[in-house]
Design a protein around this nucleic acid. Structure first.
Lengths: 139, 139
DNA sequence: GTAATCCCTATAGCGACTAGAGGTTCAAGA
DNA sequence: TCTTGAACCTCTAGTCGCTATAGGGATTAC
């Protein structure tokens, strides 16, 4: 009902400087202060911070989270925007996976191209790192 | 046989400020200068920069590239170190893919949990973003 | 009352660039 | 040979999402 920043940190796993950073970025509201200028939070702040952490864990960039917060504060808006953000993020993750899979292929080829025991001048791995034309495609 | 920094940039696709940055970081040797203090490169610099760009494209972090460059300048060293760097990078890429696949699952679930047309207060996607306990596992 | 722990602000650093300001040099055409 | 405009120079600051540190003040448990 009245948490210090450390309480909030322990409750959410978000580090103290990160909480202050979110506040500075406008993702958390400025909380009340004690007479001695220390922050005191309420349950709603805890909810907001959990939301934030979950979104960050899901890889949403901060502008997207900002949008979600704005939307959630206009309850009568339709939820298409929210759905769009989720879909975009899913799309972005899928693209990253695709790119990494191409990389994985190249690296697997490179890493197995040498059986060790050479001096580096004859190392196929080093040659493969030097020469993109040995790769099957783009990366 | 004697390139300006712009020539090098066009030949490799690496931007001019990035080339200067690589030099500052010690990944490229300091080239000769004209009387008017402009950089002039040789073919070996072009090779080095292509190597650099390829490694970066493959996702190697700069310390790893530094190691590879150091190794390649001691030609009589055995190539186990080179192989190790490739294997580590492959491992790192595979781990990133695994983590992203977990994310993909969660996001796919979240993104399909709402059929649109609600006000945001009733949007399941927003609820899913707020509540980690709805997720199957960690992410 | 005192000590331990917490909290405050402000600044700088991470990685790997990228952008801009403000000034100098080069190279091609007249 | 002169001029013009593109390319070059250095230096600084900004990007993203934090994290770390310094140098202090507040709170709390005993």
């Amino acid at each position: 009902m009245d948490f210090s920043i450390g309480d909030l940190s322990r409750a959410t796993g978000v580090k103290v400087p990160t909480i202050r950073y979110y506040e500075k970025e406008g993702l958390l509201e400025e909380p009340m202060r004690t007479e001695g200028n220390q922050r005191r939070y309420r349950n709603s702040d805890l909810d907001r911070l959990r939301f934030l952490r979950h979104c960050r864990g899901l890889g949403l960039p901060m502008p997207a989270i900002r949008e979600l917060i704005d939307l959630s504060q206009h309850p009568d808006k339709p939820c298409e925007e929210v759905d769009r953000i989720a879909a975009e993020q899913l799309q972005a993750v899928r693209e990253r996976i695709q790119r990494l899979k191409i990389l994985e292929k190249e690296l697997a080829r490179i890493a197995t191209s040498c059986d060790g025991g050479h001096p580096v001048t004859e190392c196929n791995v080093l040659k493969a790192f030097a020469d993109h034309s040995l790769c099957k495609g783009e990366h």
